[in-house]
Design a protein around this nucleic acid. Structure first.
Lengths: 346, 346
DNA sequence: TATTAACACGCAAACGTTTTCGTTGTATTT
DNA sequence: AAATACAACGAAAACGTTTGCGTGTTAATA
């Protein structure tokens, strides 16, 4: 087992000082060409690599970014993660990934753990519990220590920081508008419990569209589902009773699940009932019929979040704090067979 | 902006030495009860947290695990990742996640980067390119430095190390056996290019089952698909010409895609054609009809991999090297509507 | 009263870097 | 010959910990 070689080893071997070695490796003008060559040759031969820890300790910079997401087995989050990872690597940063499991406690623990020197900044989407309990002390605390962070998708108004968002409201508005243009009258919304910022936005867009185009907002046409245990009779009854002819769902699982359900009972999609989901993931693509979906462009979202964070990390030494920014990533509609698609371009 | 407090600050403030503070915080018997109390009270008041970097540098232990996977937007890998993260956190380790994007070069870069002090060990699944080119120098090199690693799912025989595997061959065998018991005669296999270790194993199990039960192995019933660009005429032709009555696919995307295709042409699933896929992911669950799938239990796989790695990390100082182990995680079949399921238990 | 033991604490090295500031020795200038 | 300049290098502090060992003080023992 070869042992890792350090500056000290090179110095001893070449009978020069550690500082000389360090400078030689950086092509410092203080060092003669001879020595530089000798040192670099030796370093290359023995495959010298500087110890990241020592450099980080010295420079107070880790080049690590902490990413905390509620769930990793989730198309949207992994896509964002991919964007973050991609941009970060490009800029020489590693990504430390933590899963909060939708739990406030885990979110807090993870943050505290990483905040003590492991990470230069955070990118995160708040856990369900965090949003529900409105508890953000861990965020304020991290900020007090001068560690920057960027919130994406699941955000809060109570904390001022950089944010990356979807135009949820507008996207839902456009979806409903499309239904109305297709002549639909009984447009249902299937959403989650209302403590999610994204669900709120989408619901608001839904209501706004109905009002704008003069359709009544019927609360009975809004169904709130829990995350788990979808297959109960509640959904069945919902579809049986209200004469629904179009459905907008806040995620693709709800959409595909409901689409399957109504089809089993002989409803023709899209002829008799149209569907639009959010999150253009793998399910939307392989559903039968293919699910028209509001694509959230998670990859870009991740890139933008990483860019904002790294910018802040690298400019935080400057005296004047830049104001916080909120970037909006526009959703676009991906039309498939669950809606009737005219030739008109949106 | 509060600045992070260190031992030095506490020492100065309390007019004791740094070592006293350090020892007091650890309840050392060298320190008087008075001092211990004083120090701990102060530390608590000012919310002291030791700097991870300094501790790592000193102890030569980072408590970080590097995870390198080919793709994060992939149900199986993320499930494994979740298992790794879950077990690691339990044992006080963080996870640094890197995506190789199926590229050998990125795999190498990521490993080299993390091997210089950022990580105590690796868990990885080899990239497609790595398996194709049979290039493993980066693995040998990391091992030479005494950094342990565990390979999962995408492994190689050329490197001796701890491994966690699926019983691919046996699983495929069982799938084919089920078809044969259901009276199927023309059983097709849809697989990837053959440089993937998993695909190899599954193909081998497929062949073995046919031979065992006295069915001819017809090479024309084996279709090899690339990862991308599925929707070409090749698949169509395949299903048109061979009188296929059952299909086993090495992943769920192939399965759902093909199932949709044949159904569109009026084939009844499962009556006229049965389907079994690998990877019991979200697609299998929400497909129409639900896809019978060989579940790979990625979460458990991740847990086992993390357990093996941490064990090796924490016992590596011992003189005697333990022999490398290979753990097999058994697949189980999840029966849904794409197969005809008797009452008989498998 | 002199010796010893226990106690409570501090010093300093170490982990592997980077960087400022000296300190040499040689060459150039006046 | 003295003063100056420069080139090439080393010493040491610093980042924030941990830890073996030395030291001073007090109390217990002979």
């Amino acid at each position: 087992m070869k042992t890792k070689i350090t500056l000290k080893h090179i110095a001893r071997e070449l009978e020069v000082s550690i500082s000389t070695v360090s400078k030689a490796l950086k092509n410092s003008s203080e060092i003669s060409a001879d020595t530089i060559e000798k040192v670099q040759a030796f370093a290359k031969l023995y495959n010298y690599r500087p110890n990241n820890l020592a450099i980080s300790l010295k420079s107070r910079r880790t080049n690590n970014i902490g990413v905390i997401i509620p769930d990793i087995v989730h198309y949207f989050f992994t896509t964002v993660f991919r964007g973050i990872e991609h941009y970060s690597k490009e800029r020489g940063y590693n990504v430390i990934a933590c899963v909060s499991d939708e739990s406030l406690e885990k979110e807090v623990i993870n943050m505290e753990l990483l905040a003590n020197g492991s990470v230069d900044g955070f990118i995160m989407a708040l856990s369900a519990e965090t949003q529900k309990k409105n508890h953000f002390d861990h965020l304020s605390q991290v900020r007090d220590y001068g560690i920057p962070f960027v919130l994406f998708d699941r955000v809060t108004d109570e904390i001022e920081c950089d944010k990356v968002l979807i135009n949820d409201q507008e996207a839902a508005f456009l979806a409903v508008k499309k239904f109305i243009e297709n002549g639909r009258k009984k447009i249902a919304l299937i959403t989650t419990e209302d403590y999610f910022s994204v669900s709120k936005g989408r619901e608001s867009g839904y209501r706004q569209a109905l009002e704008t185009f003069g359709l009544p907002v019927d609360e009975k046409l809004i169904l709130r589902l829990p995350f788990t245990d979808l297959d109960n009779g509640k959904v069945d009854e919902f579809f049986n009773t209200h004469g629904i002819d179009a459905v907008i769902c806040v995620n693709e699982i709800f959409a595909v699940h409901c689409m399957n359900l109504v089809q089993q009972k002989g409803v023709k999609v899209p002829e008799e009932m149209e569907f639009i989901g959010f999150t253009d993931g793998i399910l939307s693509k392989y559903a039968k019929p293919g699910l028209t979906s509001m694509a959230q462009h998670g990859f870009k979202m991740g890139q933008v979040a990483a860019k904002m964070l790294i910018h802040r990390i690298e400019n935080t030494q400057d005296e004047e704090e830049e104001p916080y920014r909120t970037e909006i990533i526009k959703s676009t509609i991906i039309e498939r067979e669950s809606t009737i698609n005219g030739i008109t371009v949106l």
